[in-house]
Design a protein around this nucleic acid. Structure first.
Lengths: 337, 337
DNA sequence: TCGATCAAGTCAATCGTATGACTAACCATC
DNA sequence: GATGGTTAGTCATACGATTGACTTGATCGA
């Protein structure tokens, strides 16, 4: 079928260098200390380089049991936020000499099965799962020691976000400005993380003695049309003077709906987003939003997953990220009626 | 070191099913026709499923020479456009039972070396490279028959975009509206594709007998601040009544700069983007832009790469995508001075 | 009833690397 | 000059699936 030009193996290198295959292997895997002299090592290296030799990753895996590939499952790659997560995770993985297979869970209904298959088939060493559905986690139980959840719900969540404090800061900010009618636009996905956000929001309102009505709550998916229409019912209510969104993209829908309803931001309506993607500063006025330390999260996730894979027993400590409220121009005192 | 709970191999399945290991392999790889009876096959399948057996991908690869993983290299994963490309490519790959390793070339200066290493180490079967720098392609020459370029420059570009017609449509649209001072905001990356865009733009202006001055050209990277300041020098010139951008994200910079300079879009200034990411309709007014058939491109790329890997000799026909001008609200007749 | 044919399986070599067990050479020590 | 220790390397097996060559038992035609 396919006859590659020249399969360069440790054997060909050995022959070319006049040593045994074992020696080549020893040198290439860096385990030459005490077994190969420096001069031989250098010589083998030189020959290997000249020939363009790369150890066959699968053959190595077959022997060692570990292929240096990780999976990263995120809800939606198209969202810049997850692009950022990927970039940071990939960088951390790369430094540990791992490659990353990205999986878009919204785009692939079978993603849980695929990850399980890949783990069982030893194609990936393990997987990071960002913001799983509540139903997904039990299904991943059978490979639990090879999975790390970010913002998950169970004990496998070694990397989490302090949503509560973040949401509190948002509500305090708005209440401090004098808002009392604060609406909420939820992301319409069955993710644990979104549920938590809204729960803490309500809790904080209660703590502050602020009212909240069911009609002040709406939800939408991230498509622009959907978020716009999801926002409409909130924007139409004059008693709502501020809206908190599960995501910056939803805030964009609020902006559109507000425009159509002739409510100016921030004079007639304050808006707060979530994630602080670059896009938040593209909106006009620039969006007040909760920033997540994306890079740190992704790094921690990779490191902790690799630790866990190394030694499933050692209970790794978990990391909880703090959110930062970025106050920009989309929030202001409510206009007095 | 790591002692997994139970390494389920074709051997364990064979033992449990009371057949030979070969038979299990035959059944699992679907090559059972004429060699295994239906009843045996079903039985083996059942046992395999009960045990949760997955063939070890690396062992298979070692024998067959092919690991079903592809790489996809794109300039910037954070850009939604490339997220879309990935999602579509991943889907096409998945249907052929391939996984996709994503590589962000801006984030990894060594990406060419990494791809070469992965190919030589047989970790990936091949790679799709979107919008490479002119310098990158020669370096990839040594694995040319395992690489497929999208919007590249050399003969490995089996998937391309008809930039010329697209840009022509843009210029015709603006000229038709009565614009004669048309500025251009380039993406500040040494990609072949961006160079082409600007070249065709100038060519079309000449064809139509329209003037173009060097001062009407500016460039910027995609960060919002950068694109804003890149746009400023164009926006400040009153003789410019329309601006064409290399990317929708750059258009966002133009919007911001225009706001600061008090030029209303589209009344004082028309703006055209490129790519038609969802975000184009979030901008206010909605952005007129050139749409790329993202999904089709990604599909074609995957299919053609797999074909090429299957048989490097067979010269596959190439596919050239057509752009569609989406006329929205950011373009209008210029205000008469 | 004998060989030929065929279906249904099994055998065993192989892919390329890693690594524990082994060896050979050299040196120092008593 | 035998013993022990160190250094530098080689040998040979194992990892798990694939696959061409082979075996076995049954069926069939003449």
């Amino acid at each position: 079928m396919k006859t590659g030009p020249s399969p360069i193996t440790s054997n060909s290198v050995a022959k070319a260098a006049g040593v045994s295959q074992s020696t080549v292997s020893l040198v290439m895997s860096g385990k030459s200390a005490g077994r190969v002299s420096d001069s031989t090592r250098d010589h083998v290296m030189a020959v290997a380089n000249k020939l363009g030799y790369r150890p066959n990753a699968t053959a190595r895996m077959l022997r060692t049991g570990v292929l240096n590939i990780l999976a990263l499952a995120v809800p939606n790659v198209k969202q810049p936020f997850f692009g950022e997560i990927f970039v940071a995770a990939e960088k951390a993985a790369r430094q540990a000499d791992y490659a990353v297979v990205l999986i878009d869970t919204q785009n692939d209904p079978q993603w849980v099965e695929r990850i399980i298959d890949m783990v069982r088939g030893r194609m990936i060493a393990g997987s990071i799962v960002y913001a799983s559905d509540s139903e997904d986690e039990p299904r991943l139980a059978e490979i639990a020691d090879r999975v790390l959840f970010i913002e998950g719900q169970d004990s496998g969540t070694l990397v989490d976000i302090d949503i509560e404090s973040g949401i509190e800061a948002v509500v305090e900010h708005l209440a401090g400005l004098g808002h009392s009618g604060i609406g909420y636009l939820s992301a319409d996905y069955p993710k644990v993380t979104f549920k938590r956000r809204f729960d803490y929001f309500q809790k904080k309102l209660r703590d502050l003695g602020l009212d909240f009505k069911n009609e002040w709550h709406s939800s939408a998916t991230f498509e622009i049309e959907a978020s716009t229409s999801g926002a409409e019912k909130l924007v139409r209510r004059p008693e709502i003077t501020a809206i908190v969104c599960d995501d910056d993209l939803l805030a964009a829908g609020v902006y559109r709906a507000a425009r159509q309803a002739d409510r100016a931001i921030p004079d007639d309506l304050s808006v707060v987003g979530f994630n602080d993607i670059e896009f938040a500063r593209v909106l006009s006025p620039e969006l007040t939003t909760l920033a997540i330390p994306t890079e740190r999260i992704a790094q921690e996730a990779v490191h902790k997953l690799l630790e866990k894979l190394e030694d499933p027993a050692r209970a790794s400590s978990s990391y909880e990220a703090e959110l930062t409220l970025k106050i920009r121009s989309s929030t202001a005192r409510p206009a007095k009626a």
